[in-house]
């Protein structure tokens, strides 16, 4: 009998492909975070004020919080179905380092739930009267920031994957952790208007991204091993 060895990168891409395929076959799940982002963002003008000036002063914060909540709500899917059908256990049993598998799952999750939000953000920004010069900062800061939210949220999801009701506890765990991203994400949108250098904020967000890419999947992997016995 010959044993077929899979390389680490092979395992990474196999997991990525599998998750993307599953997401593609469930198109409704694909649309939901996107719809949520649209709806939440359009509730703010109704609740606060349709006044363009007022809107433009809050729009960057509204967009970031809407993106944060959309990412949080989409999180629940990250490991749940795999946990329920048992494929998560197989993933844990595989000889490949779990780090890369978790990273692949986070990447695919961001591609189907985070990236659409980033792509549609200029449209919502227009509806919320964000000043024109802030479009590019918003887009770039979301592009760098939302993967960090996914990676951090993944830790919370992995810790709570076996629990019956997770919705609120997941939010309680994940939201306080997202504060630094929220701070620098919104600063990146607001401050360049007052003459600050955009690159500095993007550099910090980028640093956060690489920090979380390096460490968060390790924590997620450890959390999965705890949650799945």
């Amino acid at each position: 009998m010959t044993v077929k060895h899979t390389s680490t990168s092979g395992a990474f891409f196999a997991t990525l492909k599998r998750d993307l395929l599953i997401a593609y076959k469930r198109k409704n799940d694909l649309l939901n975070p996107f719809m949520f982002f649209l709806i939440v963002a359009s509730l703010f003008p109704i609740a606060i004020s349709p006044d363009p000036e007022q809107l433009s002063s809050i729009s960057s914060g509204v967009l970031w919080i809407a993106a944060l909540l959309a990412s949080l709500l989409a999180m629940d899917n990250l490991y749940r179905s795999d946990y329920e059908d048992g494929s998560l256990e197989l993933l844990l049993l595989s000889p490949q380092p779990l780090y890369f598998m978790v990273l692949a799952k986070n990447l695919s999750h961001w591609l189907v739930s985070g990236l659409p939000v980033v792509l549609v953000s200029p449209l919502i920004a227009y509806m919320l009267k964000l000043p024109a010069e802030s479009y590019l900062p918003l887009f770039l800061s979301l592009l760098l920031g939302t993967p960090v939210l996914s990676l951090l949220g993944s830790i919370g999801v992995a810790l709570t994957v076996g629990l019956g009701s997770r919705g609120l506890i997941l939010a309680v765990i994940t939201l306080p952790m997202s504060v630094p991203v929220l701070i620098f994400g919104t600063l990146a949108v607001q401050e360049p208007r007052f003459g600050a250098e955009l690159a500095g904020y993007l550099a910090i967000l980028g640093a956060m991204l690489f920090f979380t890419i390096t460490l968060a999947p390790l924590a997620s992997a450890a959390a999965l091993r705890i949650s799945v016995n």
Partner: peptide, 29 residues
């Protein structure tokens, strides 16, 4: 808030041993 989230996680997991390790990880993070 973060301390409360550790308390919340502890009370959400019924199995003692699992709760211990999950909270340990969350505390380090």
């Amino acid at each position: 808030f973060l301390l409360l989230s550790v308390v919340a996680l502890r009370s959400a997991i019924e199995d003692n041993d699992k709760a211990a390790r999950a909270c340990a990880l969350l505390s380090i993070v």
